[in-house]
């Protein structure tokens, strides 16, 4: 197979003519009469990497561009290339929630998405949730309810909680536990965080 061809990591390739050809070779081999049938298979699929390729992300309403390898996660691109360090790198395995951002309005783990794959999606980070220099209502509620200790999980929790309360403005305690289950706090500030969500619902603070 053509893709056995060894490639060096420093091979700074975007899309090359050779890359186009090796995939379209399948189609080239069939007679022209079958062209319409084989169109889909013969269509050229660009192959990018493993070197750096131009990547443009839509983050907090701005277009941000960089040269990145396909292996760079959205989280690492945000933190290392675009100076958006609010999303935290903790487990880096999609298990803790500290890197939570919104993608097309839904909470996701930024460590579980490749930056190259996040192109064309609307990314919102904790940085965009503050209202200028002042805290958002959910951020203020985290302070008021003592919902952080070391603070490392807090940005992820605030992104998730803000999105959750938009979808479920008056959640029950059970819905809060389920809706915020994708974020961990090793300090154990869960009671404070639940109080934030319950207070938003106008319910009793625990």
């Amino acid at each position: 197979m053509a893709d056995d061809r060894p490639r060096k990591p420093e091979d700074n390739s975007g899309v090359t003519r050779r890359d186009f050809m090796k995939v379209s070779a399948v189609g080239v081999a069939v007679p022209v009469v079958l062209g319409s049938v084989m169109d889909a298979a013969a269509e050229e699929v660009p192959i990018q990497g493993p070197g750096k390729v131009p990547i443009t992300l839509q983050v907090n309403g701005k277009k941000l561009s960089a040269q990145l390898e396909p292996r760079v996660t959205l989280l690492d691109a945000l933190r290392d290339n675009f100076d958006l360090t609010g999303a935290k790198r903790v487990c880096d395995r999609g298990a803790c929630g500290a890197c939570t951002v919104l993608m097309d309005g839904k909470p996701v783990y930024a460590c579980a998405i490749l930056a190259i794959d996040a192109q064309g999606r609307m990314i919102t980070t904790i940085e965009a949730l503050a209202e200028g220099d002042s805290l958002s209502p959910v951020m203020q509620a985290f302070v008021a309810h003592d919902a952080q200790q070391c603070g490392f999980c807090t940005p992820g929790f605030i992104v998730t909680t803000t999105n959750f309360l938009q979808k479920q403005p008056a959640p029950t305690a059970e819905e809060i536990r389920h809706g915020l289950s994708g974020n961990f706090c090793r300090c154990g500030t869960y009671d404070g965080i639940r109080a934030v969500a319950l207070a938003h619902a106008g319910g009793k603070q625990s």
Partner: peptide, 26 residues
Amino acid sequence: MRPFEYASPNSKEQVAALLGTSWEQG
């Protein structure tokens, strides 16, 4: 993570040729 090539086909007919014939390939 080790470096890798990346392709985004838009039809299922294109996938097999891009994947190759072993798990290590694609």
